[in-house]
Design a protein around this nucleic acid. Structure first.
Lengths: 341, 341
DNA sequence: CTTGGCACTCAGGACTTTCGAGTGCCAGCG
DNA sequence: CGCTGGCACTCGAAAGTCCTGAGTGCCAAG
């Protein structure tokens, strides 16, 4: 019974603190939230909560502030993700539906997330690994120079140049093109790589590469290119301006992290299967410099498999329910769009 | 005679202020710089400089600070761009030479500039308008679906899909391909557009578009696509962290501007012909919120024509000679690389 | 278990004082 | 005529002091 009230108190503290940015005291608590008890009672509860490590006081004569552990409990048990309003849903849909290609989807998502949450938004470009090959095109720019274009089911297009050792007649080019396509089209990246490799007899390094060998090599390279795995879009950095006060503790390290896409990727989290919404609070993350920032992220992608991630990064003192709702909603809409494409 | 010394004093003030971030007084001045006169003399000069509007004092009992006008004079007349050291040149060359394609060049440039100047770097992707058509490729994905690939002399590749009203036999496709290429290859974008348009008889809107018409339309669209004009890479935002003190006046508006690529483009300046190094100081710029930031920018591109711009943005109190040298050096190396490609 | 009462703590704001870097001006000097 | 040393003056920033009030912990009573 009292246990329940204690949790209500914790919830109230988190909500108030997020709203006001100031340590919250017992009196203000009972006034603003309609818990029907006296301040003294609340004080007892607060003392207990502090013993258990959920809240803390910055200095003796001040109110309480949630700890990371407190936020954790709040997120896990004390809040339900508030669903987006119909108007918000419409806005999301209309903004994302206007996208013209994959890059545009990602960029719009980033802006949208940043606007909805007023935090810094991060969206990972879809990984190649889950997508399939839609088409491979070979174009002879000069007799010894080929442009290799790789088109994937996600709409991503990669192009590379290949220098050939000798001229390649048009008929041979046409044949090579159809061979390669027969092997790769419709296959998942990993399988396509295997199939393509099978086209080339194992050569010792001494023989000059055949045209097929050269093209396959480039394709395999393009498919396993990790650069695209690491691509990330960031938006809403201007929202950091709201936190000008806690500049050194929060803004500075985050600003630095934003440039390090590797760090951001790690923050978004290792690729989970499915679209689980994960919240990482303060010190729970891998970087101690970012111990006063939290991450709300989820996987997204067509079908059931999540194949990239998106989310937001902000101070631990953030509106978790709102952020979680926005992240989840955007991820769903983006996934749906990718499904259709 | 005294005129000369006054300028020396101004130069010394600018240098000291940039280095220390603190208003500089007469005594410190004569000590640090070897001007062989007494503080009293310097004071007289400073009073004169203040009358002319080159410096100002934040409050009565403080040292002097350069005004925008003072920086302007400093940049125009009191400094020579210090050439990069051999080591720096080598570093620039080695970093940029490793680039694998156009996008990579731009991204490396941005990082490089940010590192060299410790400011926020901005690089505009090369505009299409000055480049020429190297090749157009048409690929039949299905009998009624064409992939149109446009390859430009800058290395940029644009691809679009076209849906045809009816099936197109292979022979017709081959002919269309060569017709289009004959018209466009080697032409500057603007001319290519004209030539391509000439291929299509003026149709009234009632007739369904011919395959040629559809392809030409898409090509023209791709060529005049303004999105690529507006593409910009930004780097070094973390360097803003150094200015945590003047957060509201300098960092916040800049942080906001960084998200608005249109604003950045405007800051970089209208495309000038040639590679003129331009410096825009404080209020000289078009945005009054950015009145305490300066821009150092220049055009770059292959040959004599500058066809895109790059530069850095920072507080008016910046190391102009160093920044100018870095911007110029990077622009030159990038231009050279584009020349070779 | 809750509540009202009470003594205690202490950060932050308001106010004052002190300190010193820096200025402007003047009279003398080369 | 310009440079210099001397001197009185100004005023922001730093340090010190005081005061207030929100907030706490504890206790005895309901």
């Amino acid at each position: 019974m009292q246990e329940e009230r204690r949790l209500a108190v914790l919830r109230a503290i988190v909500e108030d603190y997020v709203a006001t940015e100031e340590p919250v005291g017992s009196k203000a608590l009972v006034e603003r939230h309609g818990l029907g008890v006296s301040p003294a009672t609340v004080r007892n509860d607060m003392a207990a909560l502090e013993d258990e490590g959920y809240i803390t006081q910055p200095h003796t004569s001040a109110g309480r502030v949630p700890t990371d552990k407190g936020y954790r409990l709040f997120v896990d048990r004390l809040t339900t993700i508030k669903p987006m309003s119909a108007a918000e849903k419409r806005a999301i849909a209309s903004i994302l539906d206007g996208a013209i290609d994959l890059d545009d989807v990602v960029q719009r998502s980033v802006r949208l997330l940043a606007q909805l949450t007023r935090q810094v938004a991060v969206v990972q470009y879809p990984t190649l690994s889950r997508s399939t090959v839609r088409h491979v095109e070979l174009v002879a720019l000069t007799p010894t120079r080929l442009l290799v274009v790789l088109i994937l089911s996600t709409g991503r297009v990669e192009q590379r140049l290949v220098e050939l050792a000798a001229e390649l007649p048009d008929e041979d080019l046409a044949e090579l093109r159809s061979t390669v396509n027969r092997a790769a089209i419709g296959e998942v990246i990993a399988d396509a790589v295997t199939a393509l490799r099978a086209l080339v007899p194992v050569e010792d390094a001494t023989t000059p590469p055949t045209p097929t060998g050269a093209v396959v090599e480039v394709l395999v390279d393009a498919m396993s290119d990790h650069r695209s795995d690491e691509r990330i879009a960031v938006g809403g950095a201007a929202n950091l301006a709201r936190f000008g006060d806690s500049f050194d503790s929060a803004v500075r390290p985050l600003l630095e992290a934003l440039e390090e896409h590797v760090v951001l990727l790690k923050l978004l989290g290792e690729a989970t299967t499915g679209e689980v919404l994960t919240v990482r609070i303060g010190h729970e993350g891998p970087y101690q410099e970012l111990s006063s920032t939290s991450v709300v992220a989820t996987g997204y992608g067509p079908g059931d498999e999540a194949f990239a991630r998106l989310g937001i990064v902000g101070p631990t003192r953030m509106d978790y329910p709102g952020s979680m709702a926005a992240v989840r909603a955007v991820a769903r809409y983006v996934s749906r769009i990718l499904d259709e494409a």
